[in-house]
Amino acid sequence: MSKFKKKSNTSQEIPTSALPDIIFMLLFFFMVTTVLRETTINVRQKVPQATELRKLQRKSLVSYLYVGEPKNTVLYGDEPKIQVNDVFIEPKDIILWVSKEKDKLTEAERDQITIAMKADEDVKMGLVSDIEMQLRKANARKMMFSVRQKTDD
């Protein structure tokens, strides 16, 4: 029986010298794809799904607007609110916010500003259309409904 049990003298260790390289590769992947979180989102965000998504060309032209029920309902109530840069604003303040966002861009790019709206699926169209109306008044007419890609249902 012991005929088959050939004990070899070679070491059974897996070489781990390449491990740091693998980890570094992963690290670089995440460093490149990363966008550091700038704002804490204080509204509930269960974004609806859709199939016909399109990519935005230039990220520097995009300003984000979050709409949804506040997470802290005790403090802010449970009516959907609009959040921009860490603060809640009223629809009428959108014009001011848009002009501030436009100031960040160069002269030539100002009318190309895109407003990406990330709204919760339970938000009513009344609020959404109020936002649209204010954006029209602020002359920021490129808009995007930020949604998720639909996975097969």
Binding site: L53, K59, K142
Partner: peptide, 17 residues
């Protein structure tokens, strides 16, 4: 700290003021 860049959505051109 990562949020993988997600800038996809439905585009819309709003009418003027």
């Amino acid at each position: 700290t990562t949020t993988i860049a997600n800038d996809k959505g439905l585009t819309l051109q709003l009418p003027p003021d």
